[in-house]
Design a binder for these strands. Structure first.
Length: 154
RNA sequence: AUAGCAGAUUGGUCUGUCGCUUCGCUUAUGGCGGGGAGGAAAGUCCGGGCAACGCAGAGUACCAUACUUCCUAACGGGAAGCUGUUCGUGAGAGCAGAUGAGUGUAACAGAAAAUAACCGCUCCGACUUGUCGGAGUAAGGGUGAAAAGGCGAGGUAAAAGCUCACCGGUAUUAUUGGCAACAAUAGUAGCCGUACACAUUAUGGGUUGCAAGAUCAUGUACACCGACGCAUGUAGGAUUACUCGUCCGAUGUCGGGGGGUAGAUUGCUUGAGGUAAAUGGUGACAUUUAUCCCAGAUAAAUGACAGACACAGUACGUAAGUAUUGACAGAACCCGGCUUAUAAAUCUGCUAUUUUU
């Protein structure tokens, strides 16, 4: 009974991930553990990681051998230089996090399948405030590019 | 009704789905329930609390403040008043306000900007008889933000607070009112300019800020201690002129252990606290009673999407309605202020104008 209710509610919102397959065991969560913290790890990511741009998002990622903790860690940043007001910065960060949260399922699957670790950083590099639709479509494209890279590599 | 002035308040609401953070309960990699941005959270401009360091006492410099009384934990803040001045028809608003003994400055214009003589007026002298020289004079002249109190009478060669009446202003005395700044009335004095700066006086100011500070502590390198190992207690060092002697003793392993990096915990949210009522006060505010617990993140939560409704604006439309837009802005130890940003709405008191009764 509970299960059927859940699947119905998902079908209502299935247009969020039309291009993605639905899997019941995935949770659309983004707890603290999946945030990338710590000065050393972040500086390591930015010096050693690979980068590409899906305008207006700049993605930096770094693939690592399997270790303890969450397999995928992410961070989000909007530079103060481009957006002076904290309200706008916060909003863009929240939108990017939201887009990642709803679309990360496939990436997680692949990483777990290949037993790797991944760290990602999303930088916002536009001067204009984007709305959720644009950010989500760009986020999907960016995540797809990462998954393709990983699949072709190994 | 329209326009405006002053003060106060609000800063959309509800539902569903998927999340984030924190607290509690629980059958615990989960589930359920409660809490989760602002009036300015902003600027970091003042004043406190709290913390670390510093500190016999006094002076100087520097900075800030400066009418009166009150409020407050405190303030450079606030309340109620006083005086002057500017703006406004007005309700009101802005600015200034310790001292005046001393010193300096006052552009341009103007003869002159403060012990004023350019023109003019009056008198005297000289002679070439309309000029020169001397003296007196602030009544008249244009300039300027400001021209040496105003006006009338007396007075004089011409004039002048030179004298007098009235008026204005300053200082001072008395009385009355007021806690006081001050106001009113009466008298006295000399006859009296303004603004700013310097200067002086009084009061206050130690420095740094929660990334303060406290606790725990993996790894790496290292001070120190113990045991073992190596060696004829070795290489070497100290004592000594030198030798002996005595003392110390590197490098290795294990353990203890100090400081403390990454990180974690704490500081951290119950407080000069909020809400309501009553009382006192013109008011800021205070007192009493009742009641409530109301964010605590740390590469930094408080969100996204969808729908409904309300309010306001804009466009189209005769209208019904349709479309579209919704202000400034995000806690970072906590309070009290100030300043700046702000779509729109509401309430109270008051002013001006017009109309009606």
């Amino acid at each position: 009974m509970l299960l059927t209710n859940y699947s119905e509610s998902i079908e209502e919102f299935s247009y969020f991930w039309d291009s993605f397959f639905i899997r019941m065991n995935h949770q659309f969560t983004l707890p603290k553990k999946e945030h990338l913290c710590g000065e050393i790890r972040i500086s390591k990511l930015f010096t050693e990681g690979k980068a590409f741009i899906v305008y207006p998002i700049r993605v930096v990622y770094r693939i690592d051998e399997k270790s303890d903790g969450e397999p995928v860690k992410m961070m989000v940043s909007v530079p103060k230089k481009r957006f002076k007001r904290a309200v706008k910065r916060n909003r863009l960060k929240r939108l990017m996090r939201e887009a990642y949260r709803l679309n990360k399922a496939q990436l997680l699957d692949i990483i777990q399948l290949k037993t790797l670790n991944l760290q990602i950083a999303f930088n916002y590099v536009s001067n204009d405030e984007a709305d959720y639709g644009l950010i989500e479509s760009k986020m999907i494209a960016a995540l797809k590019r990462i998954t393709d890279n990983i699949e072709s590599k190994v």
